[in-house]
Nucleic acid binder design. Structure first.
Length: 217
DNA sequence: CACCAGGCCCTAT
DNA sequence: ATAGGGCATGGT
């Protein structure tokens, strides 16, 4: 059935359990969430490698906080937009310093309050905030990205591009479940990345859809 | 050579 | 409210 409620199990049939999907420790996810903004993950990995060379894996955030904006920019060059992202990372690290870079302290805050606080940081938009909440802090916020919008358009003809409205569609179709959101978002990206490259139509999606329709009931 | 990638901010209508 | 430009590297 061509309902967004069946998206999870339809994709699950193809890709199976993708687990938590976003790689890295919670500390690393704060950094990669910024680095990956409009950037290929491969380039993010190169930047992360540079960061790992100069930080202690136990204290990446605290260590990075001690670098200047210029030094961070130099490290993250491969990820592109390095000057901009260096600033954004400094902003985020400055916020985290208020909690002594202690992830547990963040987890203890009210979720909605924390999301609003993250959104106040210059350079942290809704998608980055929700990525941090969902993958670094294991809070039930659904991440809406370019792939999400593309898939609901291709599969269900939903043209909505507004972040909040798309997110609402998922909140109304799925229960507030961290594990589910982590896997569903991962499945969506895996599916989109697997073949979908160019608009207007991804032949892989069409085939998958037909196949799924025929196999379900 | 062109185009894209796991966005966000700012400005101009 | 919404559209468009800037940010920048590396892969295809």
């Amino acid at each position: 059935m061509e309902n967004i409620k069946s998206l999870y199990k339809d994709l699950y049939k193809i890709y199976g359990d993708v687990g938590k999907w976003w790689p890295g420790t919670s500390e690393e996810i704060f950094v990669s969430a910024v680095l990956t903004q409009n950037t290929n993950w491969k380039n993010v990995e190169k930047a992360l490698e540079n960061i790992y060379k100069y930080t202690n894996s136990k204290n990446i955030l605290k260590d990075l906080h001690n670098f200047s904006q210029q030094e961070i920019a130099e490290l993250i060059k491969p990820a592109g937009f390095f000057n901009l992202k260096a600033k954004r990372l400094k902003n985020l690290l400055s916020f985290l310093s208020n909690f002594d870079f202690n992830i547990e302290k963040l987890k203890n805050l009210d979720e909605t309050f924390l999301r609003n606080e993250l959104l106040k940081i210059k350079g942290i938009g809704k998608e980055t905030a929700d990525s941090i909440l969902l993958y670094a802090l294991n809070k039930p916020f659904f991440v809406v990205d370019a792939y999400t919008k593309r898939i609901i358009d291709r599969m269900y003809g939903i043209k909505e591009k507004n972040y909040d409205k798309v997110q609402k569609i998922f909140y109304e179709a799925y229960p507030r479940d961290t594990d589910l959101y982590q896997k569903l978002h991962g499945l969506i990206v895996e599916h989109a990345k697997s073949k979908c490259k160019k608009i207007p139509l991804c032949s892989f999606c069409e085939l998958s859809l037909k196949c799924l329709f025929h196999t379900s009931t």
